[in-house]
Nucleic acid binder design. Structure first.
Lengths: 331, 331
DNA sequence: GTGAAAGCGCTAACAG
DNA sequence: CTGTTAGCGCTTTCAC
């Protein structure tokens, strides 16, 4: 593989000049520059990123550590991050923490070893520790969920308010025993959505009851069990607030098994819109989160902080939107 | 950030010894080794991947370039790749080519600059050029779709046969005018599925007609237009073979707009199972591809080739499975 | 079994 | 404006 010295030799200049031309830093004689460019092309020269990064003590890749690649919510975030990063000459590497703190830690280590220019993360839980990154002054932006020890920018959705509104929507639609299937304790979105659900019940002067709340792992299978469990008792709920899109699938499966028709018999509202949500019958009412936009904002904040590490940490809260479809309409 | 020399100084040994201990290469005195490990921990030492890779002329990350992060088929492949890679100490960086040859090329360049240990790619089209990778002897495995100039291992699904079977299934279910919505010309899976569809019609002694074939971009919106177009003519089809899961959403939307009920009025079979496929009404009949397994196999082949570059290139063809649900049953 | 020394490919001071 | 030089942090001969 051709090195910078090969190019220099061929163009009859010094390696330093080649570097200058190729990086467009200081200005070089147009004639020389042309020779350098020609030589580089002829040799199919590609700068060695290791050497460059080692020397510069910096790289141009951003690490994006997400909780679950198979969840469209997170992949939409990824698209947002990518589009912004690409436009600024950064590349993005996607790391799938799979909601597993151990995997997440491994990827934080990779980001560290590879000296990522910055990291965007949706923390898997309370133990997420980005201290090591910050010590190396690698900027970190938290997206979807805040870090326990906030350090850096944060991009969130006002998910508690959204859960409250969704719950009130179910109340107004005429449902009486509204249950909630949320995510793991310690995951902020899961706790917030539960809190918002309780807010909603309180606002409607309904009593909330632990018997109507279940925690699952933010995956379909767990939500399916949780839903079965909820309906496996004398006083059945007549509506369900489900805390994410993967769990909605599990919940709908459970209702189908139980022979319960969403809408008419059991009101259902889920977090996260999905391409299939309008297609199920009855179509699914959802709380739509601006995932793509969250990714864009997170990337913009990260780039700003890479450029200027001394900026004050900010928290951006975007709002969600209830999309009413048929699963929350009786009859 | 602590360097290897810092650790060496602290342990009272030479950097070379630290390197030996940390890499478990040649054997060192247990006493020294212990001191080194202690010093490394105390300083929270993390090897600099740039320096290491520069010296070794090799990295331990695999690049996985997929056509569409938002398509569950590809994310399932990613999971398979990741699980195998992790187990062997490699990390995987996911690159979303977004079915865009330009983006794909950019990521190939990144893989090159970062000297990835190997690359797994689902080529976006015919122009995909991995020659530069191979010149640098970076092994390449093609997954889902073959490379135009095959060089390296390939992991495919016998998608033509599967399309044939799916078509015959529709014939046997009593549908008469079976249409096909496939992906872009030049994308092998799209062409193969179309060919398999024609095989099926031929086997059933049905005439195939260009009026019953549409190409779209493997995304929902394109398939929606294609489907509308298909039904926007005097002789309407009464069944649809759809070439992937994203397009199935578009096709089902179009049918809903047209007020056509899948199953009873229009038989539908789509490629790729999805979590929501059993939940739509009627539930969707699909050709299920072993995506996770494809990822695992691809990673295994890649690792084998990294270990031994002289292995003969292989092609592995896995088989798909028809899952009959209600959308291909009349009445 | 251990250390000294060289060098991977690049860029940034510093001279000229 | 251009070349010389040094060094980023690590691994790996080569001596001892």
């Amino acid at each position: 593989m051709a090195t910078i010295s090969d190019v220099a030799a061929r163009a009859g200049v010094s390696p330093a000049t080649v570097s200058r031309v190729l990086n467009g830093k200081s200005t070089v004689d147009p004639g020389l520059a042309e020779r350098v460019v020609a030589a580089a092309r002829e040799l199919d020269y590609r700068p060695n990123a290791f050497a460059r990064n080692l020397r510069r003590q910096a790289s141009t890749v951003l690490a994006l550590i997400i909780a679950d690649v198979e969840n469209p919510f997170f992949t939409a975030i990824a698209r947002g991050v990518e589009d912004v990063a690409q436009a600024s000459g950064y590349s993005v590497v996607l790391c799938n923490a799979d909601d597993d703190p151990a995997k997440e830690r491994r990827y934080v280590d990779v980001a560290l070893a590879e000296r990522a220019a910055g990291v965007i993360i949706s923390p898997a839980g309370v133990q997420t520790d980005v201290g090591a990154l910050l010590e190396q002054s690698i900027p970190v932006v938290a997206v979807d969920r805040p870090l326990a020890a906030p350090a850096g920018d944060t991009v969130l959705v006002d998910t508690r308010l959204a859960a409250r509104q969704a719950t009130l929507h179910l109340v107004e639609a005429g449902y009486h025993r509204i249950a909630c299937v949320t995510g793991p304790s310690g995951v902020r979105t899961a706790d917030d959505r539960l809190a918002g659900y309780r807010d909603g019940l309180r606002a409607a002067k309904r009593r909330s009851s632990a018997a109507l709340v279940r925690r699952a792992d933010y995956r379909a299978a767990g939500a399916q069990r949780a839903t079965r469990d909820l309906f496996d008792r004398p006083e059945r709920p007549d509506a369900l607030l489900v805390a994410n899109n993967a769990m909605a699938i599990g919940a709908l499966q459970a209702l189908a098994e139980l022979g319960l028709r969403p809408g008419t018999e059991v009101g259902v509202v889920s977090f996260d819109d999905a391409p299939w949500a309008p297609l199920v019958v009855p179509s699914l009412t959802v709380v739509s989160q601006p995932a793509y936009e969250m990714g864009m904002v997170a990337a913009q904040l990260l780039l700003a902080r890479i450029a200027d590490g001394s900026r004050e940490p900010t928290t951006t809260t975007l709002s969600a939107q209830l999309i009413e479809r048929d699963s929350s309409r009786r009859g």
